[in-house]
Design a protein around this nucleic acid. Sequence first.
DNA 1: AGCGGAACCTGTCGGC
DNA 2: TGCCGACAGGTTCCGC
Length: 275
Amino acid sequence: MPELPEVETIAHELCSEIKGDIISSVKIFRNNPIIQGDIEKFKLELIGKKIFDVYRRAKYLIFHLKPRCFLISHLRMTGKFIVSQYLSEPSKYNRVWFILKSGRLMIFDDVRCFGTLEIQKKLNDSNSIKKLGIEPLSKEMDTEFFFKKLSNSKREIKSVLLDQKIVAGLGNIYVSEILFRSGIHPESSVCKFRKKDWVKIVNFTREVLEEAIANNGTTISDFRRVDDKTGQFQKFLNVYGKKNEPCTKCGTPIQRIVQQQRSTFFCLECQKFKT
DNA sequence: AGCGGAACCTGTCGGC
DNA sequence: TGCCGACAGGTTCCGC
C-alpha cells in the first residue's frame, strides 16, 4: 500500500497519539507470517515497554521502545495502524492488538497479511533495514550520488528509482509522478543520463514527496490514516492511474505500460527517451 | 549484475 | 446475474 509519504503521515500521527504510553499486553488474532520469529518471544519483548518515539525509515515504521528495543513494521499493500478505544471484539482483518496502559488499543490491521512486524535490539540487526539505500529527502540524495553510482548502468530509470537498495522509500505511484515532472521516459537507460537529468530527478523527487507529505499522502483505495481519514495527494496526480486520460500539460492520452510486472503511467509527448 | 517470473494472500472491478 | 481473469500502492527468492 503505502509509500514514503503515507508512512511518514502514519508515523507522525501515531507518535502524537501514543508517545509515552505503555504496552500492557498483546493479542494476536491471526498470524499469517506477519510476525517474524517466535510469537511468544514477540509478546514478552513488548509487554511493559514504553513507546518512546515513532518514526519512519524508508517505508518502514519504527517504534522506538524503552527499555531499549525497536518494533519494526512494514505495511506492504494493505497494512494499517489504528488507535481506538478498547473494543470487545476484533474486526475482521485485525491481526494484532497492542493493548495500552491508557486503556486504548493500537491495532495492526491487514486484509492481505503481507505486512510484517519484527523486534530487534538494534535497528541494523534487521536484515531488511540494513540493506536500505539512502533517504530521498536526505542530503545524501544529490546529483553526484547518482552520477557516480549509475553512469555505467544500463538499467531503466523506473527500475532504479524503485530499487530500495539505491533510494529507499519510493514506490510505483511516486516514481511515475517524478518521471512525469522530470520529462523523462520511464524506459530510459540511466547510462545515457547527463548531470542535468539527475538534477531533475533529485529536485522533482524532493518536490513530489514534500507535496505529498503536506497532503497526508495518497489514498487510491486502501490507505487510511490513523484516524481513518484519507490522504489528499491523489488530487494532484498527473499520470498514475490515468490511462487514456488527457495529459495535463499537452492533452495527449496517458499511456500504461508494464515494467518489472508493475504498471507505469507516462505521457509519450512530455517524457522523452534519453539518447 | 540484473532481468523475468513466481510467490506471499485477499478483495475488487470490468468484460463477456 | 455469474463467472473468470486482471489487477492492486511491496518485497523476496529463484533461475538464467
